[in-house]
Simulated assay, not measured.
Amino acid sequence: MNRTITRYGGVSALFLALLLLSLLGSPAKAEAGAYGSIKSFFQLPGKVDELQENYQKIQEQYQDTREELESTRQQAEESALKAQQTADQLLLEQERLAKENSTLAEQNRLLSQELQELQDTNELRKKTNRRLRIALYTGAGLLAAVFFSGRFTRLVLRRRR
């Protein structure tokens, strides 16, 4: 029985020694870690302030970007509206010009028809005047021929006598 106690006593003593070494062996680390923790704890307000400043800057940049985007969107909408209005105006102008073009084409057709009729009438008048001149010259020539033939006949008859 004595042996079992020493056996278990040795194991527990070994365990106790390891536990003490682990606790006593790390005070430097604990002190350095504690100092770093305390130091970082006191530096937290500065970091928090820095983070808040960065957050405010980012928030301002976000707001500026958002305002710029909204302005650009409004300009795009205005441009699109102006473009639509211009397209509508151009479409109305095109329709008006198409109607005017068809009206002018009809007027042109009527004027061409009247011009053709006037040219035909002028051609007919020229033909009529030419025939009339020919008839007048022929009549005048015949009268002159009758007159001269009568004189010539008288002259011939007087010489024979």
Score class of each variant (00 low, 15 high):
residue 36 G to R: 13
residue 36 G to D: 08
residue 37 S to N: 10
residue 38 I to H: 08
residue 44 L to Y: 06
residue 46 G to L: 09
residue 46 G to F: 08
residue 46 G to M: 07
residue 49 D to Q: 13
residue 49 D to H: 07
residue 51 L to K: 06
residue 54 N to A: 14
residue 57 K to A: 13
residue 57 K to S: 08
residue 59 Q to S: 15
residue 59 Q to R: 15
residue 61 Q to N: 15
residue 61 Q to R: 14
residue 61 Q to S: 13
residue 62 Y to G: 15
residue 65 T to E: 10
residue 66 R to E: 09
residue 66 R to I: 08
residue 66 R to W: 05
residue 66 R to T: 13
residue 66 R to K: 15
residue 72 T to W: 04
residue 73 R to P: 00
residue 73 R to D: 03
residue 74 Q to W: 01
residue 75 Q to P: 00
residue 75 Q to R: 10
residue 77 E to Q: 11
residue 77 E to M: 07
residue 78 E to G: 03
residue 79 S to Y: 03
residue 81 L to F: 03
residue 82 K to R: 11
residue 83 A to W: 01
residue 84 Q to E: 14
residue 84 Q to V: 11
residue 86 T to S: 12
residue 86 T to V: 13
residue 90 L to I: 01
residue 95 E to F: 01
residue 99 K to H: 09
residue 100 E to C: 02
residue 103 T to E: 14
residue 104 L to T: 06
residue 105 A to M: 08
residue 105 A to I: 11
residue 111 L to S: 03
residue 114 E to I: 05
residue 114 E to V: 05
residue 114 E to L: 09
residue 114 E to D: 08
residue 114 E to F: 02
residue 115 L to M: 08
residue 115 L to R: 12
residue 116 Q to G: 04
residue 116 Q to P: 00
residue 117 E to D: 06
residue 119 Q to V: 06
residue 119 Q to K: 12
residue 122 N to I: 14
residue 124 L to N: 13
residue 125 R to A: 13
residue 129 N to M: 12
residue 130 R to W: 05
residue 131 R to M: 12
residue 133 R to P: 00
residue 134 I to D: 04
residue 134 I to R: 07
residue 135 A to H: 04
